[in-house]
């Protein structure tokens, strides 16, 4: 125990007791597997048998892997499109539905509802929604005289199809925005109205700046989620295709580790994904500081 720990107030010791289960869980379920993954990353482990240390062979393979480039492109495009749109949807709906009005709870429930639908069910639903021939989306587009893309059969159709599906489960970000907006002192809007601020100016100068810290948090969280946790829906909806347009890194890692028996290489790809996630989050936080989004 450090000297600071020794002089810590008496309330710290019981708190450590409460933290212990989480510390054990983190150690067993996150830290140990992560260390194992890093160790497997430099082996030819296939999932069975004994792993054999192969030095930097796997790293050299990264540079020559054409599928990795496709996977990186797919993941990058996905994050760049999906995160802003999901955030925009959650923020817009959160702000629109924050004010108490009759029936508001039903709208709020409706926005949150898709979030409790299991990924797999949502993906199966969207296989139907996006069906170019008898899906309701193209039916609607056709009725409006708009072009009816062959959603999951073209590269951009598939990319946007997955994004479209992921625009539904935004309940958590929606709730956070809603709760934050309700915390804002109503007097600020009255003061702004007296200062002559029109509604959009109040949004621009009062609401968004006060929401900024929370929006940054949500953006970081959504980046991590979108990069890493979109496996199930994308796997069911497109399985990486067509032409590897939706071969997101998690799918490619799964393919390598469990379909192609290259567990060691998959482990290295996992480390790459971790690094990329850190980079993306770091970039966001640097921009936040640079643009002084948060005081």
């Amino acid at each position: 125990m450090t000297r600071a720990g020794a002089s810590a107030p008496a309330t710290v010791r019981p708190a450590l007791g409460f933290l212990l289960p989480y510390a054990v869980g983190t150690l067993l379920l996150v830290v140990v597997p992560a260390l194992l993954t890093f160790r497997y990353a430099l082996t030819d482990y296939t999932g069975v048998g004994e792993p054999r240390y192969t030095g930097l062979d796997n790293v050299r393979r990264l540079g020559q892997d054409p599928f990795l480039r496709a996977a990186l492109t797919a993941s990058a495009l996905h994050v760049v499109i999906a995160v802003p749109l999901r955030l925009l949807a959650a923020t817009t709906l959160g702000l629109m539905l924050a004010a108490p009005r009759p029936g508001g709870r039903w709208y709020r429930a409706a926005v949150y509802l898709p979030t409790v639908v299991p990924d797999i069910a949502l993906a199966l639903l969207f296989l139907w929604v996006l069906n170019p021939l008898f899906g309701p989306l193209n039916g609607l587009l056709g009725a409006l005289g708009l072009p009816q893309p062959a959603w999951l059969a073209t590269t951009w159709g598939a990319r946007l199809g997955v994004v479209l599906m992921l625009l539904l489960p935004i309940g958590e970000a929606f709730l956070v925005v809603l709760a934050t907006r309700r915390q804002v002192n109503a007097r600020l809007y009255e003061a702004a109205a007296l200062d002559g601020a029109a509604p959009w100016q109040q949004l621009r100068h009062i609401t968004l700046p006060l929401l900024a810290p929370v929006l940054v948090l949500l953006a970081v969280r959504d980046t991590v989620l979108t990069l890493q946790v979109n496996f199930v829906p994308a796997y069911v909806l497109t399985d990486g295709g067509p032409a590897n347009a939706t071969l997101y890194l998690p799918i490619y890692i799964y393919d390598q580790a469990f379909e192609f028996a290259a567990f060691g290489y998959g482990a290295l790809l996992t480390a790459v994904l971790l690094l990329l996630t850190l980079l993306a989050v770091g970039l966001q936080l640097a921009l936040v500081r640079r643009w002084r989004i948060v005081r």
């Binding site: 002192n185 007097r187 600020l188 009255e190 003061a191 702004a192 109205a193 007296l194 200062d195 002559g196 601020a197 100068h205 009062i206 700046p209 006060l210 900024a212 005081r295």
Partner: peptide, 18 residues
């Protein structure tokens, strides 16, 4: 409000915190 040419001081001051 802003066309009435009045200025108000609120009890909790309502200063913009950001």
């Amino acid at each position: 409000p802003h066309r009435r040419d009045v200025a108000m001081v609120f009890q909790d001051y309502a200063l913009y915190p950001h």
